[in-house]
Design a protein around this nucleic acid. Structure first.
Lengths: 343, 343
DNA sequence: CTGAAAGCGCTAACAT
DNA sequence: ATGTTAGCGCTTTCAG
């Protein structure tokens, strides 16, 4: 240790002014006061002494800590979702705030504990985040605090939400197909994610399918079928393989995640089918593998960076927080897996 | 807002004791004092009023904030490195600490700024992290503070470092090969990562190659060659393809990352070669794709979770921080890509 | 234009 | 066993 940290009193003494004056000068308040000379002496002293403010002490008076708490179920674990944190980090840095990051691992009790730990440290706001888009019920401790929901919804709670615009992404998937002339042999793999465990499907699944079907219907066509399954690589492989064995071969696959597409590619290669000449593939998420595949995968990107950024921007805006749902556009990553159907 | 937060004075008043008594009771100090009755009344009052301590205020007196700062160059961006954060988070939570996460994006000036922001908030310690193992020079502001380096080294700085045990991982890669009977046709792809930009290679590359060569030499054999290139999927594809075209075909590939292996798989499949029957592949990192590939990839896992955990454990241990290098074992993920050489 | 004094919520000597 | 007092480092009335 280099000994005691230098305080504002030290600076004041060294500059030959009162602590008050030092405070006014150092906080950069221009409300007509303090002589040029005094001001200069204070800055000078602060600099030579290497003064740094104690933000904790300041907070005690000002009731603001320049600090935000982010509590997520498992954000750091999921691959590209780290982008949401990065977006949040950059937005926070731009406004001189620091971020406490916490992870509940999914249990509600730990969520309460963490929210309390955050609140006990007087965070100015909290962002409640989920690794995949879903409905949540925020812990009661959060009532009366500035809260924004990131990648989740809580209709009754009254806080703003930031989610991907999945419906429009679904429409864009459909448009790419119809614009390339696809009218039949179109299959969705993954679909609503309506597996036995969650028969009603999940948010992304439902909205993507809705947008997709809407566009296909408008083009006077539709899906040949929807294969409901989990959204992992092995499911993509297994289900595509099964599809290839059952009668009529697909002309286009709409996979709900890049992981599914990855598995689908394996099954197609095994069957000697080429992408996009024999089968077109359009996908969602834009994970890293999307660009590693050969041909690279055309996919609708989850805008996690923007979402994290927007969530922090919103919560720091100073404006009253309205329970509005912000839908962030999912950009089309046009790559090599989409082509016209084989005649 | 639910109005003013309830303070310790409120609790004391409501329980009919002095604030000091409330403090002693609520901080759970058992140093023989306070009557059962008073203690009970305080707890009772705290509970019904919903009292929560103001940790910020407490910190002002105690000089400890129960808070750690983690500053990394780009940890959240890189896929599986989020595991390091998760490990740090869990170790911190286990000791009732919260983590400030920050990212510099690689610039030194922003590193200084962030370290200052952290120090101004009186963090008890800071973890300096890097996305890939390398040598760093910590900002001078950090001198005299509790610091642990995560996934980076700074020999002159005097702080403990936590890095993967890459040499032993290299040895394990070599052992898998020799144990399966490989004696020739062994190629390393990626190698030291000694590309024109960094001719001396990077930490992981150098140590992996060292361990690998050591074992091969002990088995009275060696590498047929080392292909120096970047560590991405496309490089794996390109270089493997080139290797397959140049004369003698490889029997075993040691790829420096799973991304390289991914590219290698594509080139091998294209050439009609099968893994592991025609070519054995052993890899490093254990990214998600490692288990998605067919056959799944045998790889040496980067122990990011453990590293993050250990870094926080070390910095919170209370013990003096010695400039020791902790090498964390890289577990072998035995999967399907290694087999005996084709006779 | 500047300084003295109070106080944010809490802990810790020091009385009693 | 409990209360009184001081003070952590800072901001903010309020007087000069």
């Amino acid at each position: 240790m280099t000994g005691r940290r230098v305080t504002m009193s030290d600076v004041a003494r060294s500059a030959g002014v009162s602590q008050t004056t030092a405070s006014v000068v150092l906080s950069g308040r221009t409300d007509l006061r303090i002589s040029e000379a005094a001001s200069a002496r204070v800055h000078e002293a602060a600099k030579t002494l290497g003064y740094r403010p104690n933000v904790t002490a300041r907070s005690l008076r000002t009731k603001t800590t320049q600090t935000i708490g982010l509590v997520s179920d498992a954000l750091t674990t999921t691959p590209f979702a780290g982008e949401a944190i990065r977006g949040a980090l950059e937005a926070a840095a731009a406004r001189d705030h620091l971020l406490f990051i916490t992870e509940t691992g999914g249990t509600d009790s730990s969520e309460s504990t963490l929210v309390n730990a955050l609140l006990d440290r007087q965070v100015d706001a909290v962002i409640l985040a989920s690794m995949y888009t879903r409905y949540v019920t925020p812990p009661k401790e959060l009532h009366g605090h500035r809260v924004v929901l990131l990648n989740c919804l809580a209709p009754g709670f009254g806080a703003p939400c930031v989610v991907p615009d999945e419906v429009e992404a679904g429409r864009n998937a459909g448009r790419m197909l119809t614009e390339h002339g696809h009218r039949s042999g179109i299959w969705a793999i993954g679909g609503h994610k309506a597996v036995p465990a969650t028969p009603e499907g999940n948010f992304a699944g439902n909205e993507r399918m809705r947008g997709l079907q809407e566009v296909l219907r408008a083009a006077r066509t539709g899906l040949d079928g929807v294969v409901e399954c989990e959204w992992n690589a092995e499911d993509g492989y297994r289900e595509t393989r099964r599809l290839l064995q059952d009668g009529s071969p697909p002309r286009a696959l709409v996979c709900s995640t890049d992981r599914l597409s990855f598995g689908a590619y394996q099954a197609l290669a095994e069957a000697g089918l080429s992408v996009p000449d024999d089968v077109t593939v359009v996908s969602f998420d834009d994970q890293d593998i999307a660009s590693w595949l050969r041909p690279a995968l055309t996919t609708l990107a989850l805008p996690h960076y923007q979402m994290g950024h927007l969530a922090v921007e919103t919560v720091l805006s100073g404006k009253p927080l309205e329970p509005r749902v912000h839908r962030v556009a999912m950009p089309v990553r046009q790559r090599g897996s989409v082509g016209p159907p084989r005649p």
